[in-house]
Design a protein around this nucleic acid. Structure first.
Length: 813
RNA sequence: GCCCGGGUGGCGAAACUGGUAGACGCGCCAGACUCAAAAUCUGGUUCUGGCAACAGAGUGUCGGUUCGAUUCCGACCCCGGGCACCA
């Protein structure tokens, strides 16, 4: 039996093999190796933000799932590049630094060191020679370079824009960082401010970003989130002439419902619309000015609340409806947004819910122009109807369907020169300016003579100066303006005294291209080594949380597409395959610091070892759906590894038993099919089942039965797999020399099968027959079953259905 | 409101293209080993009835299609996530 020396000691095993892999450079590549790697597979996971708390169990879940995937393909013979890094710039880090009163320049390296220590303990096959830390000049130098390239490509623009301003963080937020009116980070109410900002023109790519989604091998949820975010809508822009305007001014609206044009009983402009002054009559001037002031004071978010009752003011002016010349009163209201479409709408209260509500509020007329079946032109409307039907009250277009009406009216107006078909997207340009300290300085110099001038590529990086006082204030100017020596510089163009741009760029820019940099980190003279980039990119498989389904993935796609267009790279989609992992919860409850139920990985690793933790996390539930971490549950995988260890201690050299061998081949088949699909929980169950068979009734495991199992298990529990593989007499190292076991289809087949026998659809007995038994033999066996016979009695069999090897249903009556 | 994802034993979960519901694991119960406990091992474990053989019920609810439905169709309820005045 076993003695103390034979006992499974995870700490010892894990230390031994981690040291071994590090010494051998098992998972690391040289530049030369990256250039020549055969059959490369780029296995990427979302790099973490190195918080002060250290690795979260959710990080470990994410990384382990990705690592299992990488290790699997490695054992299948691929050259797998699996890098890791740190997304360490940004408001997260800066706010934390402010809170604890430590400069981020000192704080972040400590966090990175701690993360590195923890990451090494979980046994991922990371290439520690190719780490990216976004806060290091060796990296952000090239982030600035990416900015300059997009700038040269005409994709960057500085413009004054109303922005979301968080009064607590004292910074501009992207729309995406405003969650139902509040700052996503501190929950403060967000306000509207007007500031000059740097924008990336992502909207230019809206169509392509949308169209490509179809061909991506991505999680369905993620693709849908992107589609919704881009928000394509098809319609028309239509000009409405302003009545009594000597210059023939027209107001252009965007609508997705040109078919309802005859029902447009008023128009609404966004309060900021440039034509408001022109159209407003003297009598209404005061009321309009007051309303515009009121709206301007409110933040962008409050304006977007739907439950709020509609407000607005009549301008006193009128336009003509281009289809019939009818006068249409022009209003302004804050439910129309300046930054979508043309900032003006034709209001059709009969068939648009919001317009209906507004019309009710202000007593404006409602006209029916669509009739559903059973309705006619005079059927009263007590709510907006936005369904299908036929056009009514629409002159010569009466009787057309909604879709035909759209086309017919658009075509006619287009021929008249007053409309054109048009597609709009909800996607906005990406504001990359941040009036903060902890980020890469935007590489621009402002010169009184030359304007905004890009820094010369050869002068990169624009180093982030060490600032003792990095706290932002509410001036809207970055703390960097206080670093005089840094701020005052010479114009790259004319050499005159000039000032540096003091905004830093959004963290999302750091993460929008980090995956391109990983394989090229050996080069400090270029951002991307062309040969290596061609070999390794795009990323073969990317795994991460679905909280980044929209922003990070969309920005990465945009930057990739732009760099492709600029001739820097030769692919336009960064991630061929993307899978979103689920969330880990704790005993049915979400984990959070405030609840005090956060699972600390270090203590679990100390008690059970990284292999057990990895195996347990992957066993909890379907990887793409997440799982419920229950403290007791870890005993399952823990016991499994212990039994495997014991089985190896007393392994025999006899050949594999035939029944066990069949089970082995079935197991190899299942695990091989499930690992690339990330179906980890069921693959692990299959291995457990197999070990139960190997050890059944106290039998001694045989070497030929165990060795293949070690390889199947190695992606999940790499340390113990290596150790036991070595104990079986292999001295080359499992990951260095083993290859994934093959299965033989013939050997997976059973000789006999159990067939369920149903009578009128209910199982009444089971019969065991030869696997190749024909239907008549199965029926004969079934009729020989006492219980089946009891239910058939003397009744005639009217019908029999036989599903080979599964079920026989006898219908009697 | 709209768009996703999900409701299966005491618990986490399985179930191929419509074919034996509950694999695997936790927990629990019983037994072995032990002075005892832990660890380990063996057996049992959907619910109800029955000593058992077996019978009845059962995959959120109601209805439908089918020889047969967790799986397909229709209506609805609940939980989780995302978007939200985008014309």
């Amino acid at each position: 039996m076993s003695n103390e020396a034979d006992r499974y000691d995870p700490a010892a095993v894990e230390q031994k093999w981690q040291a071994h892999w590090a010494e051998q450079g098992t998972n690391c590549f040289t530049q030369e190796e990256l250039r020549n790697a055969p059959d490369p597979l780029y296995n990427l996971m979302m790099f973490p933000y190195p918080s002060a708390e250290g690795l979260h169990i959710g990080n470990i879940y994410a990384f382990t799932g990705a690592d299992v995937h990488g290790r699997y393909w490695r054992l299948r013979g691929r050259t797998v590049f699996e890098p890791i890094g740190f997304d360490a710039f940004g408001i997260h880090s800066e706010n934390y630094a402010l809170k604890v009163g430590v400069n981020p320049n000192d704080l972040i390296p400590r966090n990175v060191a701690n993360f590195t220590r923890q990451l090494k303990r979980i046994g991922g096959m990371f290439d520690w020679n190719h780490v990216v830390d976004t806060t290091q000049p060796e990296y952000y130098r090239w982030t600035q370079w990416v900015f300059l390239k997009l700038y040269e490509g005409g994709l960057v623009e500085r413009r004054e824009a109303p922005v979301n301003w968080c009064p607590s963080c004292m910074t501009v937020l992207a729309n995406e960082q405003v969650i139902s009116g509040l700052c996503e980070r501190c929950d403060a109410q967000v306000e509207q401010r007007l500031l000059p900002q740097w924008f990336f023109k992502i909207t230019r790519y809206a169509g392509r970003l949308l169209d490509n989604i179809e061909q991506l091998d991505w999680s369905d949820v993620t693709r849908k989130a992107q589609v919704n975010w881009i928000g394509r809508s098809e319609g028309a822009e239509i000009d409405f002439p302003v009545q009594g305007d000597a210059d023939g001014t027209r107001i252009r609206v965007f609508t997705t419902r040109p078919d309802t044009l005859f029902g447009a009983t008023y128009m609404v402009l966004a309060p900021e619309h440039p034509l408001v002054d022109r159209i407003t009559t003297a009598a209404q001037r005061e009321a309009v000015a007051a309303y515009r002031d009121e709206v301007a004071r409110r933040d962008l978010v409050e304006r977007r609340k739907t439950d709020k009752t509609k407000t607005g003011v009549f301008t006193g002016g009128y336009c003509s409806n281009p289809v019939n010349g009818e006068p249409v009163p022009v209003w302004i209201a804050d439910y129309v947004l300046m930054d979508y479409g043309t900032g003006a709408i034709m209001a059709v209260p009969g068939h648009d819910e919001r317009d209906f509500e507004f019309a009710q509020q202000f007593g404006l007329p409602v006209i029916r122009v669509i009739a559903a079946s059973g309705e006619h032109a005079d059927t009263p409307l007590d709510a907006a109807y936005d369904g299908d039907g036929q056009l009514v009250n629409s002159g010569r277009f009466d009787g057309l369907s909604v879709s035909d009406g759209k086309r017919a009216i658009t075509d006619w107006l287009a021929a008249e020169g007053v409309a054109e078909a048009r597609v709009n997207y909800r996607l906005h340009d990406w504001c990359v300016s941040r009036q903060r300290y902890w980020g890469p300085p935007i590489p621009i110099v402002h010169c009184d003579a030359c304007g905004a001038v890009p820094v010369k590529e050869s002068d990169l990086p624009v180093l982030l100066p060490y600032l003792e006082d990095f706290k932002p204030d509410d001036s809207g100017i970055s703390p960097l303006a206080r670093a005089r020596d840094w701020y005052e510089t010479a114009c790259p163009e004319c050499g005159a005294a000039a000032r540096r741009e003091t905004d830093v760029s959004d963290t999302f820019l750091d993460s929008a291209w980090y995956f391109m940099r990983y394989p090229s980190t050996d080069r400090d003279d270029v951002a991307l080594d062309p040969e290596i980039t061609r070999r390794w990119l795009p990323v073969d498989c990317y795994i991460g949380g679905n909280e980044h389904a929209v922003l990070h993935l969309l920005y990465s796609r945009f930057v990739t597409m732009a760099m492709n267009d600029l001739g820097i790279i030769d692919f336009e989609e960064p991630f061929s395959r993307f899978r979103a992992h689920g969330l880990i919860i704790n005993e049915g409850a979400k984990m959070s610091k405030s609840r005090g139920n956060v699972i600390v990985p270090d203590t679990i690793i100390e008690e059970f070892g990284a292999d057990t933790l990895r195996l347990y996390l992957m066993f909890l539930g379907p990887y793409e759906q997440g799982g419920d971490y229950r403290g007791q549950g870890i005993q399952g995988p823990h016991g499994f590894l212990g039994r495997l260890w014991q089985a190896v201690q007393s392994v025999s050299d006899e050949p594999a038993d035939a029944d066990v061998e069949r089970k082995l081949h079935q197991t190899i088949k299942q695990v091989t099919a499930q690992l690339p699909e990330l179906q980890y929980n069921t693959a692990i169950a299959a291995m457990m089942e197999y070990l139960n068979v190997v050890r059944a009734a106290g039998r001694t495991a045989r070497r030929a039965e165990i060795e293949p199992l070690l390889i199947l298990l190695a992606p999940f529990a790499p340390h113990i797999a290596e150790e036991l593989y070595q104990q079986l007499g292999n001295d080359q190292g499992l990951f260095a020399s083993a290859r994934w076991p093959d299965y033989d289809e013939d050997k997976t087949r059973e000789d006999t099968v159990e067939v369920a026998v149903q009578v009128n659809g209910k199982v009444r007995g089971k019969v065991t027959v030869a696997a190749d038994a024909d239907e008549s033999a199965v029926v004969a066996a079934a009729l020989g079953n006492d219980n089946v016979a009891r239910f058939i009695e003397a009744k005639a069999i009217r019908k029999q259905i036989y599903v080979p090897g599964r079920v026989l249903n006898l219908v009697v009556g």
